[in-house]
Amino acid sequence: MNSITHPSPYASWETRGFWEGAGRDELVLQKCNTCELIQHRPRGVCAHCLDSSGLVHFVASGRGSIYSYTVTEQNQAKGFAEACPYIMAYVTLDEGPRLLTVIVDCEPDAVEIGVSVVADFVSQERDDDERFAIPVFRLV
């Protein structure tokens, strides 16, 4: 199987911290210092306080476990069609939130719900000055 050619992420000012962090090989999450909420996906405000005064980015451990997954056998989308079968998964991070990702360097039959995974980062070639990467996960 070919590896996935990920569509390049688009960083709005709300999501920039996540994609820039990945560009530094860091899995970046948001935390609200007012109410202690850790949230993903990133937002311009803490979803519970509805303001940004306590909201900060922090570098998460990049560790977690597979919450669920599917081996995608068919996806016509560019960058994925050639990579089928690929493993799409929800990973529950040690910090709490769950995120959607793909599991790489893993045979489809080797993946299981509950197994430990760690983040890796796929750099993006871009025609601008941005340095982004896509966080993916591999089995520990």
Partner: peptide, 13 residues
């Protein structure tokens, strides 16, 4: 879809 498109999310998936 900013956090699903880069990961090849499909409806059936």
């Amino acid at each position: 879809t900013a956090f699903s498109a880069p990961y090849g999310m499909t409806t059936v998936g």
